[in-house]
Design a protein around this nucleic acid. Sequence first.
RNA 1: GGCGCGUUCGUCUAGUGGUCUAGGACGCUGGCCUCUCACGCCGGUAACAGGGGUUCGACUCCCCUACGCGCUACCA
Length: 545
Amino acid sequence: MTTMEFGLNKKQKVNIYNMTAPQVRVRFAPSPTGFLHIGGVRTALFNWLFARQHGGQFILRVDDTDQARNVHEALQPIMEGFKWLGIDWDEGPGMGGPHAPYFQSQRSDIYAEAVEKLLRDGFAYRDFSRQEEFAQERQAAEKEKRQFIYSRTWMAETDEDVRKYEAEGRESIVRLKMPREGKCEFHDLIRGDMSFEWAGEQDHVIQRKDGSCLYHLTSVVDDGAFEISHVIRAIEHLPNTPRQIFIAQSLGLELPVYAHLPFVAEPGSSNKLSKRKLDKYLKNRDFKVLYDHGASIAEKIGFSASPETFNPVIVDFYREIGFLPDAIVNYLLLLGWSLDDKTEEFTREAMIRDFSLERINKAPASFDPQKLTSFQSRYMWRLEMDEKLNMVLPFLEKAGFIAAPASTEAKSKVSAILEAANERISFAGDILDYAEFFQNDDQFDYEEKAFRKRLVNAEAQRELLGKLKVALPDVEDYSAENLDNFLHSFVEQEGVGMGMIVHALRVAITGKSVGFGLFEIMAIIGKDSCMNRIDRALQLVAQQQ
RNA sequence: GGCGCGUUCGUCUAGUGGUCUAGGACGCUGGCCUCUCACGCCGGUAACAGGGGUUCGACUCCCCUACGCGCUACCA
């Protein structure tokens, strides 16, 4: 076999969808890090959509060749994240499947067998070089500014070589015996026709001396074993593709169709998004706004997590503060893909129907916290009352504002708040902005600035408040509608404008200068509490003077 | 250093040689509405990285440069 034969033939190059594979089978292969990264979700989503669109399978494979310990614990958040987002897998952890196991750490025998085959067929060799010796060659090449290609000096070609090197006390690893002339050509569904010189490829290590195998080998072997038809993955794997094609062809495996996705970049930058650079991201205004918003919700429900594990790059963050999975998925869908010049909102059914690899962009897409938030708001506002209620109740329970199984009474109060607050609630956790509705009359806080401006430094308004308090007991129908009428006639009688009473009243009964409609506030709080709160506010002012 | 990928408003994008004085969305911003805030409505701001070709005509095709990113690991 000459080296030229490793390229794809013409037929394969124009093959957009894998005609030889009976089914679409795609995979997402996370390494168990303990976190589900937002960029990873997008990659998984594109795979998932492609599988669902073609009635194929989406497979979850765990790339844990590196870290065998605590895999279960580190995998849990990833699996839970996907489940929460509604991205389900047909084969993999927790699901089993015809090609189990789906953990690379449990597939060593299969990899070892593949290495043996490559060795036997002359596509790989045992290398007995010592690490220093190899490094020396590389450094020499670098010094002369020439491309490094291993001399294969310590390559064992015969059993005799092996014995000789072993007698010298050397240990061996297995390297790929890469072609050194010709080109590797393949078609990428997103990038088009690709061409790489074989000579630019290193003799990559595929098996360590302890027998464990490396990524390129395991990945290709598993893609083959799992009958993966399309490899849809991030662009950083594009340069890896030739060596993987070499392995696959050497093993006699059917090649998958490749599609390399652009990466997700940091907000306001073209660097790849990483969860390790939180400090840097927090300097980005939009990112910080989202983070702070989330952190304040977390604080109120007593959820303490370090920014390492709780930040907008990690999916858990959104779940903790009350995002809707559909909003996140819809946003991510549009990060590098679009249907046309106007459609932005997609139901799951619509995205499965309309998605196409061909319309994925080539350039990196940067993560925009503001736009994500805007999707979340729109999805939240649109929710039916009972759905909204279900989202919001756990937050009130965790914050200790209502008892664990919410009473009918509590539910109707929360519904009333939800209705009145309306578009003011974007994240479910935002309900905690209305703590004063759940706190005792003498317990909620007054915003200092508002208190001073609207009450302390507003004598006429305070007087009016006193008069109002006296008039309040006579209001029989304490509904928002009637309170509206009542208050209007009250100010009319007093010969002042609404502005004279509204602001002072709002601060007195909620402690805040902003909020939803004052009449709704009064109705929800109730007559007795309103009077108590007016008293308390006026007394506080008196104490201060 | 070598190889590869990329480059349209601040951001996500539409655009496949004339329909582009470049469209939509988020953001920002002026106004209206109004008891505050929010929503909503009306309006505004803002982009083809640079230079060469090809062509009657280039955001669209080709080349070069710049910049960004990735791979070049006994990481994935």
